[in-house]
Nucleic acid binder design. Structure first.
Lengths: 192, 192
DNA sequence: AGGATAGTAGACTGCGCGGTCCAGAATGTC
DNA sequence: GACATTCTGGACCGCGCAGTCTACTATCCT
């Protein structure tokens, strides 16, 4: 019978997520991964495969957790303006370190090789998923009369997803809560 | 007396810009640079310094040319809505290859090491410059009554700069003119 | 012609890093 | 106790790449 694993793969994976999130794929070395995950190189390869496979595991993990929180924010009974305000507010209130690491999947999109089919497919699927979450919230809001009937939920969804990404790009460069709040206010005015 | 240079440094630099723009700093090898710039390694180092120095030269070149076109679009006598429509329109109509390469300086921001002071300084200066161009256009528009007096030009400027960056992030992943036009329409509605 | 400089081609070096492999210790089950 | 398996640590390999250097050629000016 085998000896039981001593480390928790979930904990180790989260450490990998945090590292990739902070440094990006290229800048994250195996040595740093071993340090942060607190496992040896052998265990890393046995459990997660090579660096790229680990990166994908990390992206899946990140995607699930962030999109789950999105779904919580847009729970069926909360007004969509309230949900958006909450999202914008927590982005604006992030620490400098959080602003600098930004969004793992947006960084992956911008640094990826455009011919990397597997990566592209994954990121597109995530993009669609996020847009659907927002669009569903806007559809509900329209049905309830929170926003006017002539608004297009899909268009609003894409707009807000894009704007949030733009805010993240800016926040990585300029850690400034007030600037982000200004942008949020303008963005929210598109619902009037 | 020295022999005259045979290649045009300006042409070679533009080739370097295009390559960095398409592939990013890391993925651009010296060998590719030599090929595209059509000069030898020796000439490259003599004329532009090392890879990083060339990258900065490329970024400066890119910055000047894109911001100059921005200033043309926002020439004093054109309505701000018209200028914005032109900008959004040309982004939406870009080819797939153009969408994939995106914006050189946005990619630089997202892939940069946050401790790289020189890079950060340069990108922040550019960010301020772009925001000022937009803000000046909104101030003029407000003075002329094109937009209501209670709008904040600086806030609008930041909002549009951020939104354009968000659109570029999306366009790199999804080459889709209609989606970009949808987003543009929503963004422009914030001027009403 | 001759000197100075710009150019090319290519060998060479050094380094960082991903990935593999091996030795040996620790921990479990039968 | 014997065996299987999981660990750790470190040696080792191969590769790609930035950067330097050398040898040689081409062009310009006096």
């Amino acid at each position: 019978m085998p000896r039981a694993k001593e480390f928790d793969p979930e904990v180790a994976l989260q450490a990998a997520v945090n590292l990739f999130w902070r440094l990006g794929y290229e800048q994250t070395s195996l040595e740093l991964l071993m340090q942060e995950m607190k496992i040896s190189k052998q265990s890393l390869y046995d459990t997660f495969g090579d660096k790229r496979a680990l990166y994908f595991r990390a992206m899946h993990h990140y995607r699930k957790s962030t999109n789950d929180s999105l779904r919580v924010v847009f729970a069926a009974d909360t007004p969509v303006r309230e949900g958006l305000t909450k999202i914008f507010g927590s982005i604006a209130r992030e620490t400098k370190e959080q602003h600098q690491r930004g969004c793992l999947l947006m960084s992956a999109n911008l640094s990826r090789n455009v011919n990397d089919a597997e990566m592209t497919k994954f990121l597109r699927a995530n993009q669609r998923e996020v847009e659907r979450i927002f669009a569903a919230a806007f559809t509900r809001a329209r049905d309830r009369g929170e926003i006017s009937a002539d608004k297009d939920p899909a268009a609003l969804a894409r707009f807000f997803v894009a704007t949030i990404q733009g805010m993240r790009a800016l926040a990585r460069l300029n850690h400034d809560r007030k600037e982000l709040e200004q942008i949020s206010r303008v963005a929210l005015s598109s619902l009037d």
